[in-house]
């Protein structure tokens, strides 16, 4: 748990003149689950997009296993083993479940290996196997999220970045998804998890960072953060109803 696999150094990202990230620094160590928390517009999604190079950083460095990947093309970052599951799942609605999974392993040339990986995803998500011939758009929200995660697993990633996997899901499904993220992590994949549902995320994570208007304002062990009243109030704020 000591080797740093992913590191951001003074990363700034802007959309035109508007700064979304104002020099953020953080590290993710091999085998960890790290969560990025924060309100809407804090820069959580932008952080992931910057790492996957969909929105390249305007300053600073992104390092993966010590290598500078700041200005690499998105597809080569995927080939290195950093995969980004975007917010809103973004599955291909007009392709079948199986085709979605196949595209996840686009960089793979070996068809037998591709089939083996699909079978592995079907073991984790049996419901996808039942529906493998259906169009992605016909799946329920939870199933689409499973497909999005399954599709990302097809690359056998070293780092899995998930953007709000619990968004719009019923609480019972949130639990299922979180359990599966834990399982994926136990199999050796490092996870960077962006969540609004901070309580669920902190239960799962080793460490967390809190973002506010493009800056990291707090970081620490998940076990500590989850007890911090100010965080719970300010960022995890959706717990107004009594437990």
């Amino acid at each position: 748990m000591s080797e740093v696999i992913l590191e951001l150094r003074d990363v700034e990202t802007r959309y035109g003149q508007i700064y979304a990230l104002r020099g953020i620094n953080f590290q993710v160590k091999k085998g960890e689950i790290v969560t990025l928390l924060g309100a809407n517009g804090a820069g959580k999604s932008t952080t992931l997009k910057t790492i996957s190079s969909l929105v390249p950083a305007s300053a600073g460095q992104v390092l993966f296993m010590g290598r500078d990947i700041t200005y690499d093309q998105p597809h080569s970052i995927v080939e290195m083993g950093v995969i980004h599951v975007p917010e809103g799942r973004m599955i291909f609605k007009e392709l079948t479940v199986r085709e979605n999974l196949e595209l996840g392993s686009f960089t793979l040339k070996n068809n037998a290996e591709r089939k083996r990986r699909i079978d592995h995803v079907f073991e984790i998500f049996p419901v996808l196997k039942e529906r493998h011939k259906q169009m992605g758009g016909f799946l329920s929200g939870g199933e689409q999220q499973m497909l999005a995660i399954g599709r990302a697993l097809m690359t056998q990633p070293k780092v899995l970045m998930l953007d709000e996997p619990s968004l719009g899901l019923a609480p019972i499904l949130v639990q299922t998804i979180m359990k599966i993220i834990k399982q994926i992590n136990d199999e050796g994949t490092t996870v960077l998890l962006v969540e609004q549902n901070a309580k669920a995320a902190l239960k799962l994570a080793n460490r967390g960072y809190v973002l506010e208007t493009g800056e990291i304002v707090m970081d620490g062990n998940a076990a500590v953060l989850i007890k911090d009243e100010s965080i719970v109030k300010a960022y995890l704020g959706e717990e107004k109803h009594p437990d």
Binding site: L54, I83, P86, M90, L95, L103, F106
Partner: peptide, 21 residues
């Protein structure tokens, strides 16, 4: 796979990049 990637790009280009395409 190339043909599937073509269809996928016409559906969603950004997500294709995230697939390593």
């Amino acid at each position: 796979m190339y043909g599937k990637a073509m269809r996928a790009i016409s559906l969603d280009r950004d997500t294709c990049q995230l697939m390593g395409i």
